[in-house]
């Protein structure tokens, strides 16, 4: 399948979605009883589990080291050995460079929303386990971690939402006219593993989209606060970046709406005072 064919002539992708359509997201919060907060999230076939411990006293080694007045956030991103949908199994769940780098990125995404000044000398642990990987793993991890933090009752500024935007490599390295026709960006959103692999460039964005009706939406340049951005794949001409960014941000906003609905559903079914 050549890079051109990510979207067919009718505007449909391999799995029947349109270019700006997200995969089905299914969520369950409070999966585990022993951690302070936990969440399970499915984005299409990507399945992720997140658990949050804290805020608690740093145990062991962290004790003497944390002299700063703010809390520390400790993240770990781990992929189960059986998580790869296609091909061989992963040899080690964590400890290799890629997962360590992703752990760091996850920490950045979480630090942007948690108000660490409320927790001097405390520690918050966020652990994410990827059970099945089918594209946008890191974004699903960020979304699950946000939900787990909400489940734990830890105050956060906003949802930290991740989304990817992928563009076909054919033409990715050519310049494009800066006036985009549709105005909503280019590229496909929330690609699965196969789409990511077919020689395309992927932009991953983690943003704080803001609640609907908030100031962020009324800004004319429609930005949303972007906290992490990374690109993978083949070359991309700079002129195409803005289109991809807009697509990804819109994807973040759409995802936030879905996550918010899931949180509200969880609240209505688990509130102790109204039983």
């Amino acid at each position: 399948m050549s890079g051109q064919d990510l979207v067919s002539d009718q505007g449909l992708r391999v799995d029947g979605r349109r270019a700006n359509e997200l995969r089905q997201i299914r969520v369950r919060m409070g999966v585990f009883g022993q951690s302070d907060g936990s969440a399970y999230l499915e984005q299409g076939n990507t399945k992720v589990l997140a658990a949050v411990y804290g805020p608690h006293q740093p145990r062991g080694g962290g004790r003497g080291g944390n002299r700063s007045g703010t809390g520390i956030i400790n993240c770990q991103y781990s992929m189960a050995v059986f998580s790869f949908s296609a091909g061989e199994r992963k040899k080690r769940p964590r400890g290799d460079r890629k997962t360590q780098e992703t752990s760091l990125q996850l920490r950045r995404a979480i630090e942007a929303i948690v108000q660490v000044e409320l927790y001097p000398r405390s520690q918050i642990d966020v652990f994410v386990e990827v059970l099945q990987s089918d594209g946008s793993d890191y974004c699903a991890a960020v979304n699950a971690a946000t939900l787990a933090l909400i489940d734990a009752g830890i105050p956060i500024k906003d949802y930290s939402v991740g989304c990817t935007a992928t563009i076909a490599s054919m033409g990715a390295s050519e310049e494009v006219d800066s006036k985009d026709e549709t105005g909503s960006g280019t590229g496909i959103v929330d690609a699965n593993h196969m789409e990511e692999c077919t020689g395309a460039t992927t932009l991953t964005v983690v943003a704080l989209p803001g609640a609907p009706g908030s100031n962020y939406e009324s800004d004319t340049d429609n930005s949303g606060l972007v906290v992490v951005a990374q690109g993978t794949g083949a070359r991309l001409h700079l002129s195409r970046l803005e289109g991809l960014r807009q697509r990804a941000l819109q994807g973040c906003r759409d995802t936030r709406v879905i996550l918010d609905q899931a949180v509200r559903f969880h609240l209505t079914t688990h509130d102790p005072h109204f039983i």
């Binding site: 929303i113 909400i150 105050p155 956060i156 500024k157 906003d158 949802y159 704080l208 803001g210 609640a211 908030s214 918010d260 949180v263 509200r264 609240l267 209505t268 079914t269 688990h270 509130d271 109204f274 039983i275």
Partner: peptide
């Protein structure tokens, strides 16, 4: 065990 009969309070979510 919750049932939707009681008036549900107004819930707020982060942000």
């Amino acid at each position: 065990l919750s049932n939707g009969d009681h008036g549900m309070p107004r819930y707020y979510t982060p942000g």
